[in-house]
Simulated scan of single mutants.
Amino acid sequence: MGTILPALDFNEAIKIITGFISDALEFSGCDGFILGLSGGIDSATVASLCVRAVGPSRVLGLIMPTSTTPREDVKDAEEFARVLGIKTFTIDISDIQSGVSKLYRDNPKLSRLAYGNIAPRLRMTILYMYANNRNLLVVGSGNKSELVVGYFTKYGDGGADILPIGDLYKTYVKELARILGVPQRIIDKKPSAGLWPGQTDEDELGITYNELDQILYAIVDLGLSVEETSDLTGIDIKKIERVFGMIKRSEHKRMPPPSPSIKHLL
């Protein structure tokens, strides 16, 4: 399948993103950055950009596997961190995740999704513990494709101080990763949040990233309707309606918690 996504000037994108990262650090008054390394393409790309922006000595990586994390992902994260020259700590959170789940007392029993989402929220907590103690900013690895449809855990992997690739669709992230020297084996992996064994992003989303990115570009960037998006992309209208619903249902994830206004009473 082709694509309606326009060509991107990746050299200019790298310049903009690394400048953003550097400026964020200077503005914050912090001493560096910390991020979670999953062994996947997004975190590898973000780590590379951070190193380009501020140097390896100011970037710390945490590798936080669970019992469902493939061993090869841990190995890829550790090896690429060594290539980048950044310090890492590997912290297995399996027992913590299991322990937290045992605090659930209600019926029905804890769902697979609820159990899986414990892990990204634990990772966020651990990242901020290190960040607080070392005066670091937490860097998130969310891309535009995930952010727009809400494919992230609220107050989990969605919890960060900056999102360097938050305006890049997954299609662009793949090419950016190649330019930055991310190993091809990482780029070629099936994207997965690792919430349960065998879980993949595209299976859970019910659509490929190639299709998703075209739909999002048409709806978000071009402002097209569902019908116009189908005409332009040739993608089945039911898939487009599903994506449109995901955008609407996840709006709360992209907004701060709402409060009622009482200023008219003052």
Rank of each mutant, 00 (worst) to 15 (best):
A177C: 02
E204W: 14
T88K: 02
V182H: 01
R134K: 14
T125H: 09
N107K: 15
A177R: 00
M124S: 15
L103Y: 08
A119P: 13
K170M: 02
R105K: 15
S192K: 13
L103P: 02
R185T: 12
R112S: 09
S192E: 11
I187G: 02
L180M: 00
R185Q: 13
E211F: 00
D106F: 14
N132G: 13
L127P: 03
G142E: 09
Y155H: 13
T90Y: 02
L205E: 07
Y155L: 14
L147W: 12
G206V: 07
I165P: 02
I179R: 11
S192W: 14
N135D: 06
Y115R: 15
D157P: 06
L137Q: 04
I91N: 07
E175T: 14
K190S: 15
A177Y: 03
D92S: 09
G159H: 09
I96D: 04
D92Y: 05
G140W: 04
I162R: 09
Y115G: 08
K87E: 15
I207R: 07
V148W: 03
N117E: 12
V139I: 03
T200A: 10
M124I: 08
F152Q: 04
V100K: 01
K189W: 01
N107A: 13
F152D: 00
V139A: 06
K109Q: 10
Y209E: 06
I186M: 11
Y209V: 02
P197Q: 10
V100M: 05
K170T: 00
Y169W: 12
Y104A: 07
R123L: 06
L127N: 07
L147Y: 12
K102V: 10
V139T: 02
I179P: 02
L205Y: 10
S141H: 04
L168G: 00
I186C: 07
S101Q: 08
I126V: 15
Y151H: 13
L180T: 10
Y151F: 15
S145N: 07
I96C: 10
R134N: 10
S141M: 06
G159P: 01
I186R: 06
S98K: 15
I162K: 10
I187C: 05
G150C: 08
P197G: 02
A119Q: 11
D167C: 03
T125D: 00
P108S: 04
L163R: 07
G99E: 03
K144Q: 11
D161E: 02
S111F: 11
G140R: 06
G116Y: 03
P183S: 08
T153A: 10
R123P: 08
E211N: 06
L113C: 05
I186V: 13
I91K: 01
G150T: 07
Y104H: 08
